[in-house]
Design a protein around this nucleic acid. Structure first.
Lengths: 120, 120
DNA sequence: GTTATAGGTAACCATCTAGTTACTTATGGA
DNA sequence: TCCATAAGTAACTAGATGGTTACCTATAAC
């Protein structure tokens, strides 16, 4: 997965309507946009644009059948990101307070207000 | 983590300059923006705006010390997303070809051009 | 064949993004 | 003190995003 594809996938996920849409499609494979419309408060065209973003990112697959277009969730991009991020930041996640420790142990730490809350 | 915070984190990751910046900060805890400037081809102000997005998303922590501002990677938001997404889509990832199977086995599958490549 | 319905285009709008240059502030060091 | 340097502000730009309404196309159903 190249950088531009990563951009597209993360951008697609950076909107709560699109995340909901993706969740619904994952939960109901083969559903159509009209069937999901009731779950949203935005217009059909607005929803269709969100769907297009998910399609462009490869997170949803569609095949036109007659006048309907059933939708399918594609887990592969999320899985790839999950694995890559997991590998890249495994060391950090092994001890998530490591960074806080490093920050607080700076010589001038007494002048800052960095607390555990700031990291959550 | 609420929906708006998710928006912020995903949006922050949806740009290759910001991902590079985050990786560099993670690799060099306590570094400053000026030190990282050489790695980028954009202006200092452009870079500073990207940093602000990472700060807003809680992915980077900063504490001003004198005229410098050392930067620290905060793994918590990524970890939370990693875990949540992992839980939510575990079933899909257990057999990632399940959706392709469902799509291809539709009655009208002969009229479509859905291949494994489309899912990658 | 008419009509209801699922989907798709076009055009528009306000706001946000990603970048720039120019200028200002604050601090560490000679 | 004076100067170099790290950081921050202000103002501007082109283009993307997120939304709308109005209209068009295709197909299923009666």
């Amino acid at each position: 997965m190249n950088e531009q594809q990563l951009d597209q996938v993360f951008l697609a996920l950076a909107n709560s309507s699109r995340r909901l849409l993706l969740d619904l499609i994952a939960a109901r494979p083969g559903c159509t946009l009209s069937q999901l419309q009731a779950e949203f408060s935005i217009s059909r065209i607005g929803l269709m644009k969100h769907l297009q973003v998910l399609l462009d990112a490869g997170l949803v697959m569609a095949q036109k059948q007659g006048r309907e277009r059933p939708l399918y969730f594609n887990p592969v991009p999320l899985q790839q990101i999950h694995q890559r991020w997991g590998d890249q930041y495994r060391d950090f996640w092994a001890s998530q307070l490591l960074r806080l420790k490093a920050a607080v142990e700076q010589p001038e730490h007494t002048t800052t207000e960095l607390t555990t809350k700031d990291l959550l």
